[in-house]
Computed example of a mutant assay.
Amino acid sequence: MTSSVFSRSIEVFKAFLLLGLSSFGGPIAHLGYFRTEFVEKRKWLDEKSYADLVALTQFLPGPASSQVGFALGLMRGGPLGAAAAWTAFTLPSAIILILFALGAAVMEGPVGSGIIHGLKIVAVAIVAHAVWGMARSLCPDRERASIALGAVLIVVLSAGPLGQVAAIAAGGLAGLWLTRNMADQYADDLHFPVSRTAGILCLTLFVVLLLGLPLLTLVFPIQSLAVFDSFYRAGSLVFGGGHVVLPLLEAGVVQPGWVTPDQFLAGYGAAQAVPGPLFTFAAYLGWVLEPLPNGPAGAAIALAAIFVPGFLLLVGVLPFWNSFRKMASAQALMRGANAAVVGVLGAALYKPVWTSAILGPYEFALALTGFILLETWKAPSWMVVIVCALGGLVISLV
């Protein structure tokens, strides 16, 4: 291993650790944090390349924001960088939820609820900042602005994460029709140290595990294997990630009697108050489930199993991504899909981000303060998190 690869992996770990400690607000907000940190601040990739990557992950099952983070780490520091990005972004919330499972005190009372509400408000500022910046770059004309508006309408009028996938698919088709003759500045290639052979192996392994694990659990009724199978299926069959995985997890751990309904709901409530990906809820479930394995072994199995399928799919697709993006029709499709991504983010800015956080003029003023800090003062995201958390505390006490 060269010192350059190692130093870049350390850089990736530090960057994502800070995000893992401060990225409140769910997957849509995480994409805003990533854009601020890696497009604006660190300039690891340009706006169009980032939007392309976001669009790709929206089409794949799994935790979209974690897949974007994994890909950014892979691009910057190779496989070690990808592992560093996932570890640093995931472990803080997983550890907090495990502490909750052990009975540690969580945010309660007016002080805790005020801080939590402030963390919801910071998501408004982060997502608004991302939508504003991406719209200027990716919707510079009336055709793409119209595609973004159409994506908003599709998401608003549909229910569930499939509406987001449908909006981006419709945006891509509209891009083929409306933007095929545009002379645009295309995104730079995204360079990932993954061969086509490795990509095909990852796609094959994804399918083999998805189809083979249920059969193995029938032949070998081992509880640890059943736990891995349950969480692997949850991570394989969900689009959009986040809250969408909850019904699959409930079916996988509550219905067999491994976790009680009260334990499940308590853990879900705690997961809303922590930064990082909601998929780390799996660590809590793995810790409390019965029978063995539980505790550290159960948490490790559940956490690995729920993330593995999304990463296998991502690594499997990445080697073919640049070739696809160079095709003239693909470029038009991606122009439309990227405009639709802006619309999807804009719809999410209203619901659930805005509707769950902005309850009155004080919350609006605090969110606007966070937006101005990001947009005009170029303040780092962690500083805006602190400002909004303290502001939420003040609002709850006055």
Rank of each mutant, 00 (worst) to 15 (best):
I10E: 06
I10H: 01
I10Q: 11
L19D: 04
S22N: 13
G26S: 09
G32D: 11
Y33W: 15
T36H: 15
F38D: 06
E40K: 10
W44T: 01
W44I: 07
Y50R: 00
A51Y: 00
A55P: 05
G62P: 02
A64E: 15
A64S: 14
Q67P: 07
G69A: 12
G73V: 04
L74I: 02
R76M: 06
P79V: 11
L80I: 13
A82F: 03
A88S: 12
T90I: 10
I98L: 13
G103P: 03
A105F: 11
A105N: 08
M107N: 07
E108V: 13
P110N: 13
S113G: 04
I116A: 15
I121N: 02
V122Q: 14
H129E: 04
A130V: 03
A130P: 00
E143R: 14
L149C: 11
V152T: 02
I154W: 01
A159Q: 12
A166L: 15
A166C: 06
A170W: 05
A170T: 14
G175C: 10
T179F: 01
R180V: 09
M182T: 11
A183L: 04
D189I: 00
L190R: 13
H191I: 12
H191F: 05
F192I: 01
G199Y: 13
G199M: 10
I200C: 04
I200S: 06
L201S: 12
L209H: 00
L213F: 09
P214G: 03
L215D: 01
L218V: 02
S230L: 01
S230K: 04
A234Q: 02
L237D: 01
V238A: 12
V238D: 04
G240W: 02
V244A: 15
V245E: 02
L246G: 04
L249T: 01
L249E: 02
G252S: 14
G252K: 07
G252W: 05
P256M: 12
G269C: 05
Q272G: 14
A282Q: 01
L285W: 10
P291F: 09
P293S: 10
I301A: 09
A302D: 08
G310K: 08
F311P: 00
L314Q: 06
V315H: 05
V317T: 13
L318M: 05
N322L: 00
S323T: 09
A328L: 11
A328V: 10
Q331C: 06
A332D: 11
M334R: 09
R335I: 04
A337K: 03
V342L: 03
A348C: 09
K351A: 14
K351R: 15
A357Y: 10
P361M: 06
E363Y: 13
A365I: 04
L366I: 10
G370E: 08
I372M: 14
L373I: 08
W377G: 00
A379I: 04
P380N: 13
W382C: 07
C388D: 09
A389F: 03
A389K: 01
G391Q: 07
V394I: 15
